[in-house]
Amino acid sequence: MTGVPVVDEKPEPKGNAPLGGDNASTARLGDRLFGGAATASGVIVIAMVTLIATFLIVQAVPALLDNQENFLTSRAWNPGGDQPGFGILEFLWTTVVAGAIAMLIAVPFGVAVALFLTQYAPVWMRGPAAALVDLLAAVPSIVYGLWGLITFAPFFRPIQGWIESTFGWFPLLAQTGITGGTILFIAVVLSIMVVPIVTALSREIFAQTPLAHKEGALALGATHWEMIRTTVLPFGRPGVISASMLALGRALGETIAVTFLVSSLPNGAAWTWSLFNGGETFASKIANNAAEFSNPSRTGAYIAAALVLFVLTFVVNSIARIVIERRKAFSE
């Protein structure tokens, strides 16, 4: 607990004035102020997360109780009305798969860029290039959406065609007839969007690898890459995991770019495992239908969907925490 003043309770010898007796040592104003402020911030953050969760649950439960369909396994989406029936399976699938593919692309690529910037690039290039990456991380997502729609989509279409005709026998890559705004396309745009995040944070931690460790590896006869593998990567591992979690959080929750690009499916469209299918993510579904929030029961259905997204990010973050904690003794 911060904010508790440290009191030195050594008894003073009789008759002597206390050392530096300004009566301030037990409760210095600055200590109390900053300690209190830090404690308050911590409490507020926890309270906010709790309140958000409470809000989501309170709003979602009535709608869920009226729900005629299985919320987790149904693909129907007919909220509101007398017989509301809605399930999130399709959004869950699209969100998770698009997020996972985006990570599969973005994390290795982002880490590679970070390694290049910290370990390989000429020194004069490191500063400016790093500033550029940081800038890229701050580009608003609508810009990626526009770029994806106007520039990248026409470029991606023939690639998708080629994959479909070559690997179409594989269920995940089967042809669906949908050419734009497919799950894979969304995933690729998301990955481009989050690479700068992974890079910026990984670069920060890779650059902090102590020279002593790197020299230790080199003195054992490690090549440059072996040195990176034995010192820089393990040292940066917790940071890379944190960076990936932030990036995944953004990818899962990304709204505007996805809403912009995605091909939504008609209600009752046939199920397919293909990544070349369309389909809404949680965020895009909610955003696309914000106009429908006409009554509490309708709204509750969308809030229930948001609750799942909330739980999803919570679970992913917890797993990452556990992974980091388990190796804590091995990270100084």
């Binding site: 102590p210 002593a212 460790h213 020299e215 590896a217 006869g221 090549t223 034995t230």
Partner: peptide
């Protein structure tokens, strides 16, 4: 130089065991 360092080992001023390793 990598081959040189495999033949000529070095111990540094501050102990620098790899912290992520047993």
């Amino acid at each position: 130089p990598v081959a040189v360092r495999r033949t000529v080992g070095m111990v540094f001023q501050r102990p620098n065991p790899f912290p992520t390793m047993s």
